[in-house]
């Protein structure tokens, strides 16, 4: 068994309105020094296979479904 974390985040230069709205709201609550907020999505996938294979399969999942290469980057880490 392998558990992988698939992290999908936005490519550099792609606006992140959810992140910037969150930043504004945190500031309105009085948090000081919030330089930046970015959003990302994490899928935790459990695979019945060895770790090195799981990483490859996770990357294929990103290419086929989980990430749109125009706007998103992905990274896969095995726990």
């Amino acid at each position: 068994m392998a558990i992988i974390d698939i992290r999908i985040d936005l490519k550099k230069g792609v606006a992140d309105p959810e992140g910037s709205n969150t930043k504004k709201t945190l500031e309105s609550l009085g948090f000081k020094g919030v330089a930046d907020v970015k959003t990302a999505k994490v899928f935790e996938v459990t695979l019945d296979m060895p770790a090195e294979e799981a990483k490859k399969v996770g990357e294929e999942m990103c290419r086929k479904l989980l990430a749109n290469p125009v706007i998103q980057n992905f990274s896969v880490t095995v726990r």
């Binding site: 606006a15 309105p17 709205n21 706007i71």
Partner: peptide, 14 residues
């Protein structure tokens, strides 16, 4: 084979 464009969040974020 894969998407070559995207329809992404409106500039307004809304």
């Amino acid at each position: 084979k894969t998407a070559t464009a995207a329809l992404y969040t409106n500039d307004s974020g809304r």
